[in-house]
Design a protein around this nucleic acid. Structure first.
Lengths: 348, 348
DNA sequence: TGGCATAAAGTTAACGGTAACGCAACGCTC
DNA sequence: GAGCGTTGCGTTACCGTTAACTTTATGCCA
C-alpha cells in the first residue's frame, strides 16, 4: 500500500527457483521432489509441495521437454472435424492417452494436402513423442518429414499400401464391397455410388472401388457415380439424388458415401414419391447416431471408431516404449435396417 | 567413407547449429534468417533456406517458446467431443487460428471437474498464449489457476456470471425460455424437460431454468423433469419417454436437452402410437445435421456455433495483441419444423 | 580522407528445466 | 574404528533458440 509496486514476484509465474528459494533448498532438489520423490526426505517433500501449492506453481513443460528428451505431446492430424467423422476417434484417443500423461495437439487439414504439409511441419516443431494421422495416403513431403523426424507415426482409419510406421484402421475397399454385396443380395440391380468425394479422400475412393468390383463380380450394370468435391451434408444428398435420377431413372439402389448424405437421399426420395425400400434401396456408411432414427431407418456400415481410438493409443504408448511397429486391422459391421429389404425379390 | 562413422550428424534431428555449420555462419544469423529475414543478405538467406530444405530442418518450438516469451499454443478445453456438440466449434476455431500460426492443444474433460483441474494445469504447463474453455462455471481451482497464470482466457458457449477474462457464448437461459414459449404458443400445456443433465452441465440447467420460468409466467402446471446423469444418446430419449409417460400421462409437450435425445423421443412416441405434433409436441436443442431429416422433422434451437468459433479466434488474437477483455453474446435461432404445430388450438 | 550513420554479421547471456556427477553424513559390518 | 554402501542434497553442464549487445564492413558526405 505504502511503497507502491515493489519489483518483487520477479516478473510473473513462479519457477522451480521460486520454490527452491522459498523452501531454502537447491533447484534440483525441487525438481527431484517432482521427478523422483523417493530421493527426497518426506518432510522436505511436504514443504516443497506446500510451497508449490501456495505459489500455484505450474511446471514449464517447454523447458522440461527441451532438457529431457521427451515432450509428452502427441500430434493428431485429422482431415475433418465438422461432420464429426473423426470426433469420436479423437475423443477415445485423448482419454486413453491421458493415463500416460500425453497431451493431444490437434490439427485439421480439411482434406487440403498443402495444409497437411504445413500442419505436420508445425506439429513436428513441437517435438512430439508420437504422431497420429488420418489416412495412409499423404503428400510425399509429409511422408518424408515424418520419416526423417524419427518419431513414431500411427496412421489411422485406413490401412494398406506403404505404411510409414504403424497403422490402425479398417479395410475400406472391403467395406465398399460389402455395401454393394448387401444391396445386391436384397435384389437391387441398378446401383449408384453417391456422395462427397474430395480429391484427397482416398477412403471414399477405395469404398467406391470395392463396390464396383462386387458389382462386376455379380455381372450387373456398371456402378453409376454421383459425387461431388465437397463435404458431405444431407443437402448434398438431396441435390445429387435429383441429378442422379434425372439422368439414370433406372437406378434402384444407392450406395452412399456417408450417413449424413444418406439422410438427404432418403428425404429426397420420399418427396419424389419413390418408396424406400420397396422401389429403391439405400445404404449409408458410418452408422451415425441418427441412422436408426430417420425414416426409414438406415442400413449402413458401422466402423469400430472406438476401437480405432483405443488401439491407436495403445500403439502410441507401445511405440514410445520401444516396441515394434505394427498394423492393426479393426472390424466393421454391416447394420441392416429398413432402408434395404433383405427379402426383396429380383425385379427382372 | 574411409574413416568409418565420424561423429558428425551429432545424434539426430538437425538444429540451427547444423545449418549454421553447413552454410558457414553463426547460429544467430540462421535464426535471424527465419525471424527477421530483412536483416540477412538475400544471397545468404537463399543458402540458408537451401540448407534447411536439404537437412529437413524443423525448428524446435520448445526451445523457441522457452527463449522467446510466446509459445503459440492455444489450449482448448471442451467438456465433450463424442456427441459432436463442440466439434464444429473446434473446427472453426482451429482453422481461424491457423492464420496466426497458433496451434491448438486439445483437452476433453468429459464433464468431470477433477479432470478439468488436471487438464487445465496440464495445458498451462505448456505456457499457452491463450486458453479457450467451454463454460463459465468451473471448479474454484481452475479459476484460480487460470487467473494466476496471467494468460488470456476465453470462455465459450455460455456467458454470464463471473467471467474470468473474456467470453463468447449464448444466453442459455433465454434459449430455454424460448423453447418453452414456442411450445406454449403452439398450444401445448403440460410440459416436460427431458434429456441428459450431468451435474456439471450448467448450460443444461440454465435452459431448464429458463423453460421453467416461461411456464410459470404463462401460469401453466410445473415443468416435469425427466433427466439423467449421463451423456445424451437417442436411446436415452427412448427410455426417458417411457418413464415420463408412465408417471405423467398428461404430458403433451417435451422440451429436449439436445437433438440426439429428441431423435429417440420421436421414435418412442411413434411406437407408443402418440402422434407428433398432433397429440404431443417435441422441441430439441442444437440443430444437429439430422434434425431436418427425421420424421417428423424436429423443431429446435440453432446456436451459431460457427460464429462462436470465429469470434473466439478473433478474441484470442485480440487479447494476445493486448486488446481489452470483452464478452460477446452470439445469437441463436428458433427453427420451427414439424415436431411442433404452430396452429394447434388449446386442448383445454 | 576523416567522421559517422547504417547494414550485416558475430558474441554472450538468458529461458526453466533435467541428468550426471560429487560429496558429506550416516549406519552397518567385522 | 576403519572401510564401505546408502541416503540426501548441492554443483555443474547442457537442451536449442531468441534477444540484447558488440563488432566489423560499407557507403556517403563534408
Amino acid at each position: 500500500m505504502s511503497s507502491g509496486a515493489e519489483p518483487r514476484e520477479q516478473g510473473g509465474t513462479p519457477t522451480l527457483a521460486s520454490i527452491a528459494a522459498k523452501v531454502g533448498v537447491s533447484i534440483n532438489t525441487v525438481s527431484r521432489a517432482l521427478r523422483a520423490p523417493k530421493t527426497v526426505r518426506p518432510e522436505l517433500r511436504r514443504q516443497i509441495a506446500e510451497a508449490m501449492d501456495e505459489l500455484n506453481y505450474v511446471p514449464n513443460r517447454l523447458a522440461g521437454g527441451l532438457s529431457g528428451t521427451r515432450s509428452d505431446i502427441v500430434g493428431v492430424v485429422v482431415t475433418s472435424l465438422y461432420y464429426s467423422e473423426f470426433a469420436s476417434i479423437i475423443d477415445t484417443l485423448q482419454s486413453a492417452l491421458l493415463k500416460d500423461n500425453l497431451q493431444v495437439m490437434l490439427a485439421n487439414t480439411r482434406y487440403d494436402p498443402d495444409q497437411e504439409i504445413t500442419l505436420v511441419r508445425s506439429i513436428l516443431s513441437w517435438r512430439p513423442a508420437a504422431v497420429a494421422i488420418i489416412g495412409v495416403d499423404h503428400p510425399a513431403k509429409v511422408t518424408e518429414l515424418l520419416k526423417s523426424s524419427g518419431v513414431p507415426v500411427i496412421e489411422m482409419w485406413d490401412v494398406g499400401g506403404g505404411i510409414i510406421d504403424s497403422a490402425v484402421g479398417m479395410d475400406h475397399e472391403g467395406a465398399g464391397k460389402a455395401q454393394a454385396q448387401h444391396i445386391i443380395a436384397c435384389g437391387y440391380r441398378h446401383l449408384a455410388f453417391l456422395g462427397s468425394m474430395r480429391e484427397n479422400d482416398m477412403r471414399a475412393r477405395k469404398r467406391a472401388r470395392g463396390a464396383a468390383s462386387a458389382i462386376a463380380a455379380a455381372g450387373l450394370p456398371d456402378l453409376v457415380h454421383a459425387v461431388r468435391q465437397e463435404g458431405g451434408r444431407p443437402a448434398l444428398g438431396e441435390e445429387l439424388v435429383h441429378e442422379l435420377l434425372d439422368h439414370h431413372p433406372q437406378i434402384d439402389g444407392i450406395i452412399c458415401n456417408s450417413d449424413v448424405v444418406a439422410f438427404g437421399v432418403l428425404k429426397a426420395l420420399h418427396q419424389l414419391g419413390r418408396k424406400v425400400p420397396d422401389d429403391i434401396g439405400v445404404i449409408g456408411f458410418g452408422d451415425s447416431e441418427a441412422a436408426n432414427y430417420v425414416t426409414p431407418s438406415l442400413s449402413t456400415i458401422r466402423p469400430d471408431r472406438h476401437r480405432i481410438g483405443e488401439l491407436t493409443a495403445e500403439l502410441i504408448v507401445a511405440r514410445i516404449n520401444g516396441e515394434e511397429p505394427r498394423t492393426d486391422v479393426v472390424d466393421w459391421e454391416l447394420i441392416a435396417r429398413n432402408s434395404t429389404r433383405p427379402s426383396r425379390s429380383p425385379t427382372r
